[in-house]
């Protein structure tokens, strides 16, 4: 009987998929669905034991009247925009350089990738140490050239940009690798033809590389947007959303609501709204992949 199931070409694939599906169901899909349930209850750390009342969509209505939540959307968009501009600009530049200079690429690529695979905690602490007012490397360099040191993470106007710099540091390698891989898929014929026609390198970049790269760029931008929007581990380590909520992104506010204020249901509602934003981006993602294929 069991042998039959294992040997039948019809049933075997399902058997092989089963462990994965069971695991994914229990640690991803089921919690994900439970989230909707939680978000419709006023679940708090203060009624975790006694049971939370059902409140329907009240958490969602409350969200859009909550000035802190709206503020967090604003902060998130600055954070995403700043990170994206930096990561994409530098990433594209590096990808082009590595692609057209395969000689040094091998050495530099492995250096550039390092930040991408370090833990959020280590990244956070490294940058706290870099930004330290008295002992940080950045302020030391500023003093060296005669500039005033800056309270990077404590200053309301600076903190978000300090985080953006750290995030660019962390995320640029991904964009670089992604776009470099995409460049490799571009055939060489169009360039040769362009060369024959006497096109400058800027022209061939503008009229050949960019259009052919466009789908990859679109996917890259979407992924970066999603990840940056959802990111909160390094923010949690570095500023916890402060000073004066200057770095309170939506993801950070979700964490704060759920685990600092103890409002689990409300936190769940925030994650659902975040998810909707993600879903919107995912639709774009599939659309661009579809267009490429």
């Amino acid at each position: 009987m069991i042998k039959g199931i294992l040997n039948s070409e019809r049933t075997l694939p399902y058997v092989l998929m089963a462990p994965l599906l069971v695991l994914l169901f229990s640690v991803t899909l089921f919690p994900f669905l439970w989230n909707f349930y939680v978000s419709m209850h006023d679940l708090k750390t203060t009624n975790l034991q006694s049971g939370a009342p059902f409140v329907g969509l009240a958490n969602y209505f409350r969200l859009f009247r909550d000035p802190t939540f709206l503020h967090s959307l604003k902060i998130s968009s600055y954070f995403v925009l700043g990170s994206m501009v930096g990561q994409f600009g530098l990433g594209l530049l590096l990808a082009m350089i590595l692609h057209y200079h395969p000689g040094p690429a091998r050495v530099f690529r492995v250096i550039f990738v390092i930040p991408w695979i370090l833990s959020a905690l280590i990244i956070g602490y490294s940058w706290i140490w870099m930004y330290n007012y008295r002992f940080g490397l950045i302020n030391s360099l500023l003093r060296l050239v005669g500039l005033r040191p800056i309270h990077w993470l404590n200053d309301i106007r600076m903190a978000l940009w300090a985080l953006v710099i750290a995030n660019i540091w962390r995320g640029t390698p991904f964009t670089m690798l992604f776009l470099e891989a995409a460049l490799k898929t571009i055939p060489s014929e169009p360039y040769e033809a362009a060369k024959v026609d006497g096109a400058t390198s800027w022209q061939s970049f503008r009229y050949i590389t960019l259009p052919l790269l466009r789908p990859a760029i679109a996917i890259n931008l979407i992924l970066v947007t999603m990840w940056t929007f959802n990111l909160f581990d390094t923010i949690l380590v570095m500023t916890k959303g402060g000073p004066a909520n200057a770095t309170l992104t939506t993801a950070m506010y979700m964490y704060k609501s759920a685990f600092e204020y103890g409002l689990l249901g409300y936190g769940s509602a925030i994650t659902i709204v975040m998810l909707l934003i993600n879903a919107l981006l995912a639709v774009l993602y599939f659309k661009t992949i579809g267009r490429r294929a």
């Binding site: 694939p13 998929m17 994965l20 599906l21 994914l24 229990s26 640690v27 991803t28 899909l29 089921f30 919690p31 994900f32 439970w34 989230n35 939680v38 999603m226 990840w227 959802n230 909160f232 993801a251 979700m254 964490y255 759920a258 689990l264 936190g267 769940s268 994650t271 659902i272 975040m274 998810l275 993600n278 995912a282 993602y285």
Partner: peptide, 26 residues
């Protein structure tokens, strides 16, 4: 097969932070 592939990819796109609260409860 295609539906399962898409589902797995879809689950991959769910940010882990979204599941923190229900995972804790689970």
């Amino acid at each position: 097969k295609n539906a399962l592939t898409a589902a797995i990819l879809g689950l991959y796109l769910i940010p882990p932070v979204v599941n923190v609260i229900p995972l804790f409860l689970l």
